[in-house]
């Protein structure tokens, strides 16, 4: 755990960087209407999760945030940049995006070079890059593997490498696509810790996830998508308690919410401690305890 003491890659000095999605619609060349009039404002430092079933438009939406897709209608602003006016490569200095499948991302022959790829594209000096790489690898606890070939690691470790390779770019905004897929309890805790740390530094963290318990534990704001539209948008505790609404896009509430609802507790908590508190309160009131 010595690694965790080392400094985190600092945010770029670009300053607070809100994201504004203004009435965005997007239609794929195939004719699929993937987004229909989505509007969102994401404040700097927010931790927001996007949930919904496959095909709801989650990935299409986040691909608009770094300019990989340009709106058919409406506009997307990252800070003061309209994504249509800047290349994806330029926007990469502001928005880091970790793809779902690590094997779509890894290009270098060592873990260290892989993590240094982004900083290199951003034009950082070798010394800066070395510091970025060391700090990012420490965060994902893979410092000992800098010289290892990425394909000698497990898939779960490779996913952490891709996470580090975006952390090393020190962007004010980060997007994680299914960060917990294939991770075990230790990996979950590690990624959860990184999200908390980024939040603490005031950076914007966005995720697409099916892991609703992970979402409940670390993301204060939840956006529910269905059929290319925003179905609900609000505080995680409120949104994740709306079982009927979530069911329309095939999302199950977190385990603790389901339990609280099955027990008809007055309030659904997102943490174990919160659950026990609610339980204590209701038992005290009901005189059952």
């Amino acid at each position: 755990m010595k690694n965790a003491q080392r400094p985190t890659p600092n945010a770029t000095p670009a300053g607070p960087m809100p994201i504004t999605v203004e009435d965005v619609s997007f239609t794929y060349p195939s004719g699929t209407h993937a987004l229909r009039g989505v509007s969102l404002r994401i404040a700097p430092g927010e931790a927001m999760a996007i949930v919904g079933e496959n095909g709801a438009g989650k990935t299409t939406l986040v691909k608009h945030l770094n300019g990989l897709l340009k709106p058919s209608q409406g506009r997307v602003l990252v800070g003061d940049w309209d994504t249509r006016e800047h290349s994806v490569a330029k926007t990469a200095a502001r928005v880091g995006y970790v793809f779902q499948n690590p094997d779509d991302q890894i290009v270098e022959r060592t873990v260290g070079d892989e993590v240094g790829f982004g900083p290199k594209q951003l034009g950082r000096t070798e010394a800066e890059r070395a510091a970025d790489v060391a700090a990012a690898l420490a965060l994902v606890e893979l410092s000992d593997y800098a010289k290892t070939h990425p394909y000698d690691l497990t898939t779960a470790q490779r996913k952490l490498v891709t996470l580090a390779s975006v952390l090393a770019m020190r962007t004010p905004i980060l997007i994680f696509d299914e960060p917990t897929m294939g991770q075990d309890a230790r990996g979950l805790a590690l990624i959860g810790g990184i999200v908390e740390r980024l939040k603490g530094e005031g950076r914007t963290v966005l995720t697409i996830t099916h892991d609703i318990d992970f979402c409940a534990a670390h993301f204060g704001r939840v956006v529910v998508m269905a059929d290319g539209q925003v179905l609900a948008d609000g505080a995680a505790a409120d949104v994740l308690a709306r079982a009927e609404l979530l069911a329309t896009t095939n999302v199950e509430p977190p385990q603790l919410v389901r339990l609280a609802q099955a027990l008809r507790l007055p309030r659904a908590a997102l943490t174990v401690d919160g659950f026990v508190e609610t339980l204590q309160g209701s038992r005290g009131a009901g005189g059952q305890g």
Binding site: L256, F275, L279
Partner: peptide, 14 residues
Amino acid sequence: GLQPTRYTQAARAA
């Protein structure tokens, strides 16, 4: 390195 379900965790906390 395994995480018990939230149900088990809640019961233990209770």
